[in-house]
Structure formats: structure tokens, C-alpha cells
Amino acid sequence: MSQIQLNDEMFDKLDDSEKNSEFIAVESKTFFKDAWGRFKKNKLALFGLIFLAIMVLGAIFVPMLSPYTYEGQDLASKNLLPCLAHPFGTDKLGRDIMVRVMYGARISLSIGFSTAVINLFIGIVYGGISGYLGGKVDMIMMRIIDVIYAVPSLLYTVLILMIFGDSITSMMLAICLTSWIQMARQVRTQVMSLKEMEFALAAKVLGASDMRILMKHLIVNALGPIVVCLTMMVPSAIFTESFLSFVGIGLNPSIPSWGKLANDCRALIFVNQIQIIWPVAAICLTILSLNFIGDGIGEALEIKR
């Protein structure tokens, strides 16, 4: 056995650079701070967020602060081009287009967001139960979804609108009744893979009830994909509403939703194209922004879709 020769050279003092190598220079980040940092780097997603914020603020405040109402007519100043008094111009009845578009934003955005939230609840309950219980229950619940999903959802939506009338509430109901499926599927897939994880087993061993395991452990861990799915639901609800109102089978024509505003412009394509820009831009940019935000969140939380 050879002995190690110790000499003075082996006991040199550390120089400063080496001393500091273990130093933690940055404050440690929580999961959401980290995700927000990545989200901020995504320019498109940030643009989406800013545009949406402007739209929401505009929807709240413009109709409140503007001197015009969405239905107030002023035949003396009809078909005006954008000017100081009317930033977006006026339509053929002299109504201020900016107020109408922002009022439409109230309707379209609230339909979009509330259907998404309702879908969230239905989806979590349905998908959670189906994924957690598995087996026969899961099979039956999934067959039900298959049957509903096999037919274009628009057909159901139209039927429901015909039965319950053309109010905003029945539009929400009609959109919800078919679009929760996506959320339920997403939740189910997540719950199915998460329930096999060790922390779920640990919770079970500690005597947690099924309800608690599902809500406190599984759903919470599935929040990332759920949030992405949620963001993607808002634009599709806005699309469905504007689609139906555009064809004239959606909301009551007296409600100035974006689809209805675009529908009003259909008659004008030969005369006054500038008025068409506003509702079209509002619908397209909002849907685009929401898609960007959804993609951004997905990327920030590192979810592969």
C-alpha cells in the first residue's frame, strides 16, 4: 500500500473566485414567478395580454364615459369618417361606432369568459370523476362524450338557441352544452396519469378521502394544461357567437354583439368599407390575442400539447 505524500502545495488558500462559486446570486423563484418570466419573454403572448387588457378596459369604460349610447341615433352626422368626436366614425344611422364596438366587446368577452368558467367546472367534475374512477364508469362516460362529439356542435347550439330564445344567457348555455367536452377530456387524461403517481398513493395511505385526493392533489397538479385549455375556450366561444350572429341565427338583432356589427356591415361592402374594419379587427385581434396568450402560457408552463 503506497502512502500519500502530503506537502505544502496541497494546502493552498482558495482564491476569492473559487470561494464565491457556490454563492446564490439571484433570489430563488417560485414556480409562477419562473413561468411569468418565461411568459414575458414571449413577445406575441405579451402583445396578446396587452391587447386583451386594453379591450377589457375599453369594454368597461368606453360605454360608461362616452357621451354617446350604443343605440343613440344622430341622423345629422351619419356615415362620418373617423374624427375627433367619433374616433371610429359613425354608421348609417349616426351611431358612434366606437361605443358600439366596445359595447359589443362587453357582450362577446363576457360570453367568452363566462362560458370558459362554466366549462371549467363541468369539465373538472366530469373529467375528474371519469378519470379517477376509471373502469366501467369511465367507459360509459367516455361513450357519452363520443356520442355528443360525433355531431358538429353547431347543430346542438342552434337547436338550443331555437328552444330557449335568442338572449345572451341562452347563447352561453348553448355554447357551454357542447364545449365542456374538450375540458372534460383534458382533465380526464391528466387525472388518469397523475393518479398513478406516488404522491397520490401517499395521500391515499395517509387516509385522505377520494374527494380530497382528486381536488387537492390531482386537479391542482393538472392546473397547467387546464389553464391552457381554458384560454383556448374563450376564443372559440367568441367565434361561435359571432358566427351565429353574423348569419342572423344567433343573438337577438337588437343586441350589438360583434357578430351583429359585422353582419350590419355586410350590406355596406359596396358603399362604405371603412366601417367594416372595426368589428372585423375587434373579432380577429381578440381571437388572435387569446390564442397567443394560450400558446404563451403553454410554453411558459412547459406543457406539450
Partner: peptide, 12 residues
Amino acid sequence: GVSIPGFLFAMI
């Protein structure tokens, strides 16, 4: 293409 609704594209 995914974000612009077909009917608005048609109108434009």
C-alpha cells in the same frame, strides 16, 4: 388562418 374566422376572411 386558425384565428381569423372564415366568414370575416370571406368578407375582406
